[in-house]
Design a protein around this nucleic acid. Structure first.
Lengths: 228, 228
DNA sequence: TCCCTTACTGGCCGTTCGGTCAATAAGGGA
DNA sequence: TCCCTTATTGACCGAACGGCCAGTAAGGGA
């Protein structure tokens, strides 16, 4: 068969010979390239050849690192993107000193901040939404590692406020509350990804209204509002 | 060139000769087929041949009706799916008699109801999210015809309640409020599309918590809550 | 210094898919 | 009845893409 491989040295001078790296060094390069490519073109639109090219690597190598092919690579890229942000939020809750109202405010504020600051990675969140139903494994991952964790963090914040008496006690009886509290922040991020910074709803305004609404709704009922 | 076309009559008997329909009749058939295909496979995954097959039509005909090709067809399919629901909501607001609290409750309730009842069409909403940034025209459409309209409906509901004194007057000064009120319902739908009915957050519970939270947050401040 | 493991290469294959086009027939108007 | 407009067909094209694999070199251990 036609002798493959090895043109390698291009251009003016032996610019670089074949680069051999330890997997621990090569892997992040490939992952970063994959994040870029997937973020820009979506799952189906992304090309393995393009990922390889961004990583400065031959296409075949991708199948060396990700035997599962494209799907495998996609999952890995998504995984590494979401976890750190949830870790930060969990740390914030765990170590907080001070009024619980302030804690909740800070939690929501950093949530909005994280989504405003790194568009590239946030696009991956949008990608999860887009592709979840075609990747059972990805839906599992999201359900278990993202939504459940985020929910639990919010729930912990609410419970903490209830214990100090800052939030109304019967909030625990509303199983849907945590998701309702969570949703605007995520949706704000999604709108931003869809429409761009200019046409999307203003994240700052949403954040303020969001905090205000949540705190009002959680305030202990000094006078009973006719609840029905 | 090899004489194309015309095998047509298949199987046992002249099952059907070439069907010629008025565009006004053919168009909805194609649109319905496209909605199905796009909903099931996503934009990139959908095939023009598959759409044609679902519509009982040859692939070439699609390009007769949608000269812009796949993108054109996609936009048209999405268009016809979203408008009716917003119309219903607008009608609800316009014609409502009774307390504004009840009106808002009904608005939110029908919102959740619509999203629970027709999974197929709702998937298209998820598709808008997924594809908006690769279709400027689609993002325009969403921004103008969906988000803006929905926002306006919620805003009208809030204003109505403020006028009667049922809602606190200073809610109008919170530009982000409408989006925050809107977001949980949309997000609930998205979660449902992503994760399936079983793993997604319970829509009924979200609806109740959502209504309760919004009404609490909109209640006129009998006693001032320290707002900061 | 040698040698063996393995990171790495890139051409090739089969397939899929969007889009085109020349040919064809349906059916309404003259 | 004829004819002309146009709805309809399906074979065909070329490009893109995912995946494979036979072959190549880097570099650490013996």
């Amino acid at each position: 068969m036609g002798k493959p491989g090895q043109v390698a040295v291009v251009g003016a001078e032996g610019r670089q010979r074949r680069q051999r790296l330890a997997p621990a060094e090569r892997m992040p390069l490939i992952l970063a390239a994959a994040i870029e490519e997937f973020a820009e073109r979506g799952y189906a639109g992304a090309g393995m050849a393009a990922v390889a090219s961004r990583a400065g690597v031959a296409k075949g190598l991708l199948y060396h690192y990700f035997p599962g092919g494209k799907a495998d690579l996609f999952m890995a890229a998504v995984r590494g993107c979401v976890a750190p942000k949830l870790d930060e939020a969990a740390r914030l809750i765990a170590g907080f000193q001070g009024p619980r109202r302030e804690m909740l405010r800070r939690l929501i504020t950093t949530g909005y901040a994280r989504m405003a600051e790194n568009p590239r990675e946030q696009v991956l969140c949008k990608l999860i939404i887009a592709e979840a139903d075609r990747f059972p494994e990805l839906a599992d991952f999201y359900s278990r590692e993202v939504l459940a964790r985020a929910t639990e963090i919010v729930r912990a914040a609410l419970r903490a406020g209830i214990e100090t008496g800052e939030f109304r006690a019967d909030a625990v009886d509303q199983p849907g509350l945590v998701h309702v509290v969570l949703a605007p922040a995520i949706m704000g991020s999604v709108w931003r990804m869809m429409l761009g910074e200019d046409r999307a709803p203003d994240l700052g305004a949403m954040r303020e209204a969001h905090i205000d609404m949540v705190l009002r709704a959680l305030a202990p009922a000094a006078q009973n509002m006719k609840n029905n």
